[in-house]
Computed example of a mutant assay.
Amino acid sequence: MDRSHRRVLYDRVRLRANQHGASKDCCLALPSAENNLSLRHQEWTKTATGPPCRTLRQNGGQASSHNLFVRRGWEGGARNDEGFTTGLEHFTSLGYDVVALDYRLGIKIAKERNEITPANGTEMYLRAIQWSVEDLFDATSFVLKHADDWNIDKDQIVLMGGSSGATNSLVAEYNVANATELARTHLPVGFKYAGVISMAGAFWLKANTPLAFKNQPAPIMFFHGGKDQLVTYDEVEGPFSGYGPVAYFRKFPGPDYPKWFVDYPQGDHIIAAMPMIDSLNEMDAFLEKLVKERQQVSIHAVEEDRMPKTFANAAALLPKP
């Protein structure tokens, strides 16, 4: 299958290079907390010219696709976390390359500096998101700089994340679609992501910021639970403006804004991880139809389960070690 028009960036999970056969044409990238860069088993130190990242690739011919994932509450997580290994191996088996990268953990840093207080907590979280998006943009620029050497299609980079990583990815797309100063400063002129996959993420913006776009946003795939304890499912206005998938579908109905929402009314924040276990086929379809083929469709799928996807049911839902 020709996947030469796909790209995905991912965060947080370890993959081993050269586990599978020759690559097709896609790539996954993962932000993490390690301070090194490895490419095809070569180790690089962090420098001012590029963010720390790990590129795990198969030997390929055609230009490949790319995916980026971001992690836990802006306090922790590592690109060698084994929790998503099986899911990412699914992508590499289809020919995706994987780039793993680091970003600053803003809340961890704020706590270490004793900066965060009950009064400024929202401000610290918004700063953490901005730092993460800035680092994500720098990592994207680093990948673009090496795209020809790595045989990566620059027009097919897809962001992917869970929880804080999903929020970072959505806010990154918000900045790109609105050509903000942050995007203009850290990304090449005219660059656009080809898609976003969000697992329990939301657009978290400064207070009184409407969810609006100057330019057409990339196709977005949302996975989200109606009982999510942490991340906005619909819409909230207060110390910050939060917009989840329900709000996105309400504000941008119809196929003019390509999107796909897998909706779990009974699900909670475990949806930040579950799709990498049981919804890989849906992700494949999103990448094929909305990213590669650029189909103009709007899909809202509602899943109700006899055993709801919640942390209370985690032992039964998650694969046995």
Results as ranks from 00 to 15, higher is better:
P52F: 06
F91D: 00
S163G: 03
N178L: 03
P51D: 01
T85V: 07
V176R: 05
A316W: 06
I197D: 04
N175T: 14
P31C: 08
S241L: 07
N178S: 07
D25C: 00
T92A: 12
F252Q: 09
G190F: 01
T140A: 03
V13D: 12
S298H: 10
P188V: 02
G21S: 14
K108W: 11
M160Q: 00
Y248R: 11
K292M: 03
D234T: 13
F84T: 11
N281D: 14
N36S: 08
G165L: 05
I271A: 09
S132E: 12
R294P: 01
D2A: 04
W44M: 05
A48W: 14
F69S: 04
T122R: 13
A128S: 11
E134N: 15
Q295D: 03
P319E: 14
D284Q: 02
K259E: 07
P217I: 12
Y96H: 02
G87N: 05
G267Y: 10
S32C: 09
N151S: 05
V98S: 10
Q229P: 10
V246G: 04
D256P: 11
H269P: 11
H20C: 10
D256F: 12
T47S: 06
K320C: 01
L187D: 07
D268H: 07
T45D: 10
V231R: 09
L187E: 09
S32K: 04
G161Y: 09
G73L: 06
G254S: 04
N59C: 02
F191E: 15
F191P: 02
R184G: 08
V189I: 06
K259S: 13
L287S: 03
T180F: 06
W74N: 12
I109E: 15
W74P: 08
Y243K: 13
H5D: 10
S169D: 09
Q295H: 08
H186R: 15
R7C: 04
P217V: 13
F223E: 06
L144W: 04
G50N: 06
G61D: 11
W131F: 11
E237D: 13
A100W: 01
